[in-house]
Simulated assay, not measured.
Amino acid sequence: MDIITSPETMQQRALAERSEGRRISFVPTMGYLHAGHISLLEEGRKRGDLLVLSIFVNPTQFGQGEDFEDYPRDLQRDAELADEAGVDIIFAPVASAMYPKGYATYVYVENITEGLCGASRPGHFRGVTTVVSKLFNIVQPHVALFGNKDFQQLAVIRRMVLDLNMPIEVVGMPIFREEDGLAMSSRNVYLSAEQRKQALALSQALTTARNLAAVGDLDCAEIISTISEDIAKQPDARIDYIKICHQLTLHEQSAVDQDSVLLLAVYIGKTRLIDNGFLLVPA
């Protein structure tokens, strides 16, 4: 396994591999890998001849007062896990290589970025789409894999790839959860033992919402009210948003249907957690 830090070196390697007819699979991450990331790598291994993992904590997607400086980093640990997962190349640039002095070009996707995380984290998705487009240009992948936990991010990236005619297959992979239901996240390490228990309120909210829909309670406002009250019982919880949206447009819905997805962002203490799940109407 090779570790490449130079964007130019990575791009030259990728172009050379493509010229030899090799299919490149790509998993972009901010590192501190967990089992969810490993599932992406395992699928990427199946879908390509060369598996590239990027590890880059992207400063442009963090807002003022967010956890850029504190975001967990451990390249040696990540490299060991990546090697076990069959990664061929880790691309791990530094910020000054990705955003050199005088950098002035950004990618912005309209409309779909304005609600949900886009509303509470201004500028976040501009940072995401900019770095992902840069990574796509550098790594030159045929297929890129992302987790469904970042549901809005995946929708935004798919929109960008479609609108900018990028010849890349974007694959969304299922959310990986701990045995007790908590969605895996690198930020889970911030939680104290007590907060870790409180964080289960997110996955429990999904279960409650699905159970309500399953018995015919389809009013979105009522479902949101019920699960909001449940989450608010946790002493360290602060709700950022709870929305039920159409899975493609992310427009808010008034009644649950087969295209409905519940999206949650909740602070447990200082840690912002997100989760989501589809709400299926019984036939």
Rank of each mutant, 00 (worst) to 15 (best):
G127D: 00
G86C: 06
A92V: 06
P122L: 06
D74A: 10
K134Y: 03
F125G: 04
A92M: 08
D150F: 06
T113N: 05
N148Q: 15
P93R: 10
T129P: 06
G102K: 08
E80A: 14
L116V: 11
V128F: 06
A95M: 09
R126P: 00
K101H: 02
L81H: 09
P100Y: 02
L135P: 01
G123V: 10
E110I: 01
P93C: 12
A144S: 14
V132T: 12
E84I: 13
Q76T: 04
G115Y: 01
K134H: 02
A82L: 04
L145E: 03
G123I: 13
N111L: 07
D150E: 06
K101W: 04
V94D: 10
F125C: 07
L116M: 14
L135Y: 02
A79K: 15
P100V: 00
A104C: 01
E110Q: 13
V139K: 04
G118L: 07
V109L: 06
G86F: 08
A92Y: 08
V132A: 09
G86M: 14
A85D: 08
V131N: 03
P141D: 05
R121A: 04
D150G: 07
T105Y: 00
M98I: 13
S96L: 03
Q140R: 15
K134S: 00
G115W: 02
G86A: 11
A79R: 15
V143D: 03
E84Q: 15
M98L: 13
P141H: 12
Q76C: 00
A82P: 03
V128T: 09
L145T: 01
G123C: 12
N111Y: 10
D88Q: 09
I90T: 04
A97I: 07
G118D: 01
G102D: 07
G102W: 11
P93V: 11
A92T: 09
G118E: 03
K134C: 03
D150N: 07
P93K: 09
P122W: 11
F136H: 02
G115I: 03
F91C: 09
G102L: 05
V143P: 02
N137M: 12
S120T: 15
I112G: 01
